[in-house]
Nucleic acid binder design. Structure first.
Lengths: 166, 166
DNA sequence: ATTGAAAATGTACGAGA
DNA sequence: TCTCGTACATTTTCAAT
């Protein structure tokens, strides 16, 4: 249910356009030895299947004034308030991710802030009022890897690498 | 040093193209009431300044067979091996982020895996051999927010909101 | 930043395997 | 059903202003 059959052409297309959304489809076509129309239709198909969810230019957060990146694990006073808290988190633009987790935290979020001071303000002024019993902050001093999940040559059929074995 | 002055046009362009990398520049131009060439030049400028770092199509990880997302905090046996470990992490495609942190962990990484079982394999077979003394895994059951940092109307000049104050 | 024009691309349509 | 080839509208890109 989660994954669809992707053939070699699909994967090659995904690999190319996931690395550069502005690449001309005709260039993709030449790299794949098919016509431009074929690429066009494949991309439409991949989009309608929900595999492709749009595109975006990547903006360097530091260059637009966001020098601090942090992950914050949240413990809710009332975990049943989860959905309401998520809605409030959506209204905080600095929160770019929110994960529902178990084990460690009730929820786990990613925050970009201008600096450490700004981060503290966000936590105190915007996060705490949501009904936190506690929070743990992990500040990233440097993102040494930040990339997209690569497209492999086998996406759902074989698991004959050591990765998927028992 | 980290941020450059962005005027209203820059920010409007960034806002539009960060939401859709395939948007025609002429459409951006019409939305901004300037010529297409102006957009073209601005985007070149933003790219050469390093503010724009390319573009990408967004692929739904679940739809290509990656149903588990986890964050793992790593403790290195020998923290001075940091750089070498990062290089080895780069060779693990499932690792999409790596942060240098202090306080909690030596480093903090994001992993996509096919399922929980695959995640354990990655941790045991690929991460442990890097020289970990310990690791803590946070599994995300659901990413309820996942978005890009928005472009605000003031990126570096004013801090007159409550966010950046003392 | 604008204009204008040439080159390249995006997209639709019909045909064929 | 999928791909291709063509045709036309649009966009990209670059000059000079």
């Amino acid at each position: 249910m989660a994954n669809h059959r992707l053939d070699a052409l699909d994967r090659k297309i995904l690999k190319l356009i996931s690395a550069d959304a502005r690449i001309p489809f005709l260039e993709v076509a030449r790299a794949c030895n098919v016509s431009g129309a074929a690429i066009h239709q494949r991309i439409q198909k991949l989009t309608s299947l929900g595999i492709l969810k749009g595109s975006q230019f990547i903006i360097d957060p530091e260059k637009v004034g966001y020098e601090t990146c942090a992950y914050v694990g949240l413990y809710l006073k009332d975990p049943s308030e989860f959905d309401a808290v998520v809605e409030k988190l959506k209204a905080i633009p600095e929160v770019t991710e929110c994960h529902y987790t178990t084990g460690g935290y009730d929820m786990f979020i990613k925050i970009y802030s201008r600096n450490n001071h700004h981060l503290l303000n966000i936590i105190h002024d915007k996060l705490q009022p949501l009904g936190l019993s506690r929070s743990e902050t992990i500040v990233s001093f440097n993102a040494v890897i930040d990339r997209q999940l690569p497209i492999f040559d086998n996406t759902d059929e074989e698991e004959d690498e050591d990765d998927g074995e028992d």
